[in-house]
Simulated scan of single mutants.
Amino acid sequence: MSEHPSTAKELAIFLFCSTVYRLFSGALLVSLTWTILKQNDGDYLPLALAIFCSFIPAFITPMMIKRLSRHMTGRQMSSLFVLCLTGLALISGFSRNFTLGLLITNLFVWLMIMSLEASLDMWFTQLQRGMDETKVRRISGATTATSQAALMIGPLLAAGLMPILTGIGFSLVLSTGFLLVAGICYTRNGLPMDVREKPEVAAPARLPMTLFVPMVLIWPILGAFNFMLPVYVSNHGWTLFELGVLDAVFGLGMALIGVLVIIANTGRNLLVYLSALTALAVISTTMWWLMPDTLFLKALSLLILGMAFGGARVHIRVAIACRYSEAAVGLYVSKANALATPMLLLILSLQLAIIENAWLLPFLLVTLSVVLLLQTSATRFARGQTPVEAMGA
């Protein structure tokens, strides 16, 4: 397979687009979940329904990605999906006072977001082609740091703008941001897609289950977190400000671990790195369980949890990007998203059954993910001794 040189300019475009997209998507998502919750005060079923339905599009995503990857690169798909978010952000402003309208809008927003996550991973895979794995890990850390910083600011943006803008005004701000990203993706000349990668879409080499299961758990963890956090804030009589702060520090934790990955040479110390993530997950769970219910202590616990979760996502992205073609990565990510939907249904059902302890499940799932990745790191695959892509489909 030929290698495509990835320039600093292309990486800068990728960083900008992925960061700004996540800034405005974070604001859009938290505004949708908070509005749905407040319209049904005391009834958590609509919120649970909204979060579960958000993951139904995961069944459609694999087919979309597989079909589109025959004709488009990850960058081109990203432009198309962000353009769709531009329109959906506008629709969210008009449906602000209608729960059914918000639920339907939320459904399509998540369809675009899941498709975008797959296309961005494809774009990243294309950019890193031919690089050393340690360098790829640092680039992944940089993208994680900037993206999570954006997701951290997004909820605060919503908390700051929603009280002073009308529903239409807030949606116009979001649409402008999405349109900017879509335009830059569309007008830039990306790296060409090697047509010789296409046969790998049909039958890519298999991932180890200890790596694939954490991939499947990424969205259920986020869904469980998105459910438990508004419930916790509402139960304690807090406001959108506290929700924005707690959501933001979780993202800050993921950004912080990205910075640490850039600084540290984690490519040569995977066992130490993943053992540290396991320790962070255990510490955050213990803190949330035993510490008093103050904003500072809960925020500190979520900061640590965000570091563990973000570190796991960095490792997963590098492990697949260094061994699979762009199209195969998109297919695996979309398949993991599809399997995440029934998993999320089970998790949300459990959270509704133990509503007072709904916080427990996202903490335990993060811990399980990093433990599985630690197991994977002991194998030849995780250490990068045998590039899977070279083995053929």
Rank of each mutant, 00 (worst) to 15 (best):
residue 320 I to C: 03
residue 328 A to S: 14
residue 320 I to P: 04
residue 96 R to Y: 14
residue 283 I to K: 11
residue 283 I to S: 06
residue 206 R to E: 07
residue 133 E to Q: 13
residue 106 N to S: 14
residue 153 I to K: 08
residue 189 N to A: 12
residue 153 I to D: 12
residue 203 A to T: 05
residue 351 Q to L: 02
residue 31 S to Y: 10
residue 195 V to R: 15
residue 381 F to D: 14
residue 138 R to T: 04
residue 385 Q to R: 15
residue 72 M to Q: 09
residue 387 P to R: 12
residue 272 V to M: 14
residue 4 H to I: 01
residue 280 L to S: 06
residue 393 A to F: 06
residue 349 S to E: 09
residue 389 E to S: 13
residue 163 P to W: 01
residue 284 S to M: 02
residue 349 S to K: 14
residue 52 F to I: 00
residue 322 C to I: 00
residue 364 L to W: 08
residue 337 N to M: 07
residue 122 M to E: 09
residue 83 L to K: 10
residue 230 P to V: 00
residue 258 G to D: 03
residue 89 A to W: 14
residue 286 T to Q: 03
residue 367 T to G: 15
residue 29 L to F: 14
residue 243 L to S: 07
residue 159 A to V: 03
residue 226 N to A: 05
residue 200 E to L: 02
residue 25 S to K: 09
residue 362 P to F: 01
residue 32 L to N: 10
residue 86 T to G: 14
residue 291 M to T: 08
residue 169 G to N: 09
residue 382 A to D: 14
residue 76 Q to W: 02
residue 157 L to T: 05
residue 200 E to R: 14
residue 31 S to N: 14
residue 228 M to C: 05
residue 338 A to K: 09
residue 238 W to N: 07
residue 14 F to V: 01
residue 393 A to P: 10
residue 373 L to R: 05
residue 269 N to A: 04
residue 96 R to E: 10
residue 263 I to P: 11
residue 260 L to T: 07
residue 253 G to S: 04
residue 34 W to D: 02
residue 79 S to M: 01
residue 134 T to H: 12
residue 387 P to F: 04
residue 341 T to H: 09
residue 308 A to H: 13
residue 123 W to E: 06
residue 159 A to R: 11
residue 138 R to G: 07
residue 93 G to M: 03
residue 86 T to N: 08
residue 47 L to F: 04
residue 247 D to V: 00
residue 343 M to Q: 07
residue 159 A to Q: 09
residue 220 P to I: 00
